[in-house]
């Protein structure tokens, strides 16, 4: 069988991530797809620590560490600067966590998306402020425990529909990925790299430390999130053409996913049923969005790189 994932490793051992960290898998796969000609803009997030302290780096591509809310704007600046210096090949990638994307960085990201700046924005989503010690973000799912949403008062509101928000900017390419589906992820990051304009990739990256789950279940949880339809894998071209990449023939019940995580251990059977209803409703909604889109999206979405 021919491997579709490039063998080149641009991430090295010696990084500082926790055991079973999904964010490191996300980086490793993303860099395999991006290749050497990449510069990263990384705001405050787990990865500003994972990379390693000065003077070390666990990556073989340059990183510009920037302030929490500036992943997108610093990336836009780097892209403009490189273009003016005659470098039109390097892909500038903003690499941020869910807090830096869904919350504090959303303004700068919206600006870059509206301008359709030629950057790729990758959000690795571990569903809370993990680097600061597991505080809720607007990416935290409803009813989840975090240190700011205690078990007797878990999060009341649903996870923000960041992908929907990005699609509403009508940028050329939006995709969701999972660290449990590396072939799918590499394909999407490559597709994004070949697309001119602003690209948004949302990677589901479990955090055993924050989710109170066993480190060895990282990939399993990421796969279950897809198989239970909690985190569907899909693409949106030009903000309107949807393509669902994985349609589980026999979707698993969400209980299989939540039972493996300490952050959900306080849930009652009724809570889990309610989560199941919401997941089913969201899935039906996604199917409707994708209706009639399947034939045309590739052609419409893919544009030649300048």
């Amino acid at each position: 069988m021919k491997l579709t994932i490039p063998e080149q490793e641009l991430m090295q051992s010696g990084h500082l991530a926790c055991q079973g960290c999904g964010a490191t898998l996300a980086m490793r796969y993303a860099l395999k797809a991006l290749g050497q000609n990449t510069v990263l803009s990384i705001p405050a997030c787990c990865w500003s620590v994972i990379d390693g302290p000065f003077p070390y780096s666990s990556l073989k591509v340059p990183i510009f560490h920037t302030a929490f809310e500036t992943a997108a704007s610093a990336a836009s600046g780097m892209e403009a600067g490189l273009e003016m210096m005659g470098d039109k090949d390097t892909q500038v990638v903003a690499w941020a966590g869910d807090g830096g994307t869904f919350d504090i960085g959303i303004q700068a990201l919206s600006g870059a998306a509206e301008r359709n700046d030629n950057i790729m924005y990758i959000c690795y989503d571990n569903e809370a402020y993990m680097n600061t010690g597991i505080q809720r973000s607007s990416a935290t799912p409803r009813l989840s425990w975090t240190t700011t949403t205690p078990e007797n008062h878990p999060k009341e509101t649903p996870k923000k529909d960041m992908v929907g928000i990005m699609a509403a900017h009508r940028i050329p390419y939006v995709a969701t990925c999972s660290v449990a589906y590396p072939e799918d992820m590499v394909k999407k990051v490559k597709k994004a790299k070949d697309t001119q304009g602003c690209k948004f990739i949302h990677v589901f990256a479990p955090c055993p430390t924050g989710w109170r789950s066993a480190p060895e279940t990282c990939v399993k949880l990421a796969r279950l999130a897809v198989q239970t339809k909690v985190f569907p894998l899909y693409e949106i071209f030009n903000g309107v053409d949807y393509k669902i990449n994985v349609k589980p023939a026999k979707p698993k019940p969400v209980t299989e996913y939540v039972k493996l995580q300490g952050r959900f251990r306080h849930l009652t059977e009724a809570d889990i049923k309610q989560i199941q209803r919401t997941v089913d409703w969201e899935w039906e909604r996604l199917l409707k969005m994708a209706e009639g889109c399947e034939e045309t999206e590739e052609k419409k979405g893919k544009k030649k790189k300048k």
Binding site: G77, A80, G81
Partner: peptide, 12 residues
Amino acid sequence: SAMAASIGASAV
């Protein structure tokens, strides 16, 4: 963002 983008451009 103006200053963040300026810093990014200057950094390259």
